[in-house]
Amino acid sequence: MAAVVREALKADYIGTGMHEGRKRKRVISAGALHPVNCVLIDPDEGAIYYDDENDVFVAVQPRDQALLGTYLAKCEDVLPTARGHVIGLIADVRDLSSVYTDHETLLWRDAGAVLQTLALASEASNLGFCPLGILGQELADALLGNDQAFVGVGAAAIGRRIHE
């Protein structure tokens, strides 16, 4: 599962100088700012965050375990038969909002592009992938507190396909 996240979100180029904060990835993004970040959650093992700038996965501990539980319960309500990992998308809106007025529409477009790229990478890896249709603000709040700069922008289930 981590390989799918990395393949979809790895930064091939990170800008410097006047291009500071801009990145080139496999997924499109307004102004190459790429505000959408990914947390991969194994309900039994915990959560890891993909740091695209350093190309590493980092274990993260929630500040609010109960809120994380609420998030995972919502995911399970949508797809109760899933037995895999949950991908949570969290966006940092600070850069996007400083560059664009009405940045919200670009944020949602970017989040959709990330979900689509994750779906394509999952298919290429012969994994099942299902966007859950929830935003997941509970995940952002569980990990980062109530910081309004971080917004839950999507969730998906990923794992081995079940063949009947």
Rank of each mutant, 00 (worst) to 15 (best):
N146L: 00
E45H: 10
A66L: 07
A2H: 06
L107F: 00
Y13E: 12
G31H: 09
L139A: 05
D12V: 06
E7M: 12
I134C: 07
G112D: 13
V4S: 06
Q61R: 15
L115N: 11
I134V: 15
N37L: 01
L144E: 00
D95M: 11
H103P: 02
E123F: 08
Q137M: 06
Y100H: 06
D42F: 10
T101Q: 04
S97N: 09
A124F: 01
S125P: 03
Y71R: 05
D51H: 15
L127N: 05
A155C: 10
D64T: 07
R24D: 01
I48A: 14
N146I: 02
A66C: 00
P35Q: 14
A149N: 09
A8F: 10
Q137F: 01
H103Q: 05
H19L: 14
A2I: 00
G69F: 00
P62Y: 06
V27N: 06
G31I: 07
L144G: 00
T81A: 12
M1A: 12
C38V: 15
D95V: 01
E164N: 10
L33P: 10
L143R: 01
L72P: 08
Q148N: 02
K74S: 15
I87R: 01
A140Q: 01
A3T: 11
A111V: 09
H85N: 09
D147N: 14
Q61T: 15
L139E: 04
P62S: 09
G17A: 05
R94E: 15
Q61S: 15
C38D: 04
A32I: 04
D51K: 09
D55E: 07
V27R: 08
G84D: 09
I41Q: 02
V39I: 12
K10S: 07
L89Y: 07
Q137S: 12
Y49E: 14
L139W: 03
P62R: 11
H34E: 06
R6T: 05
G154V: 04
D95P: 05
H163R: 05
N146T: 04
R22V: 07
L139I: 06
T105G: 00
V56K: 07
H34R: 01
I87D: 01
Q137H: 14
A111Q: 11
Y49G: 08
D55Q: 05
E138Q: 13
P43M: 13
F150D: 00
A3W: 01
D92Y: 08
A3M: 05
K23R: 15
K23V: 11
R63E: 14
A142G: 02
V99D: 01
D77T: 09
G145N: 04
R160V: 04
F129P: 02
Y13F: 12
A142M: 02
V86M: 01
V36P: 04
R83I: 03
G84S: 11
L132D: 03
S29F: 08
S29R: 03
T81R: 14
L118S: 14
E53G: 12
L9M: 15
H163F: 06
V27I: 13
A157Y: 10
I90L: 07
A3R: 13
D102K: 09
A73F: 11
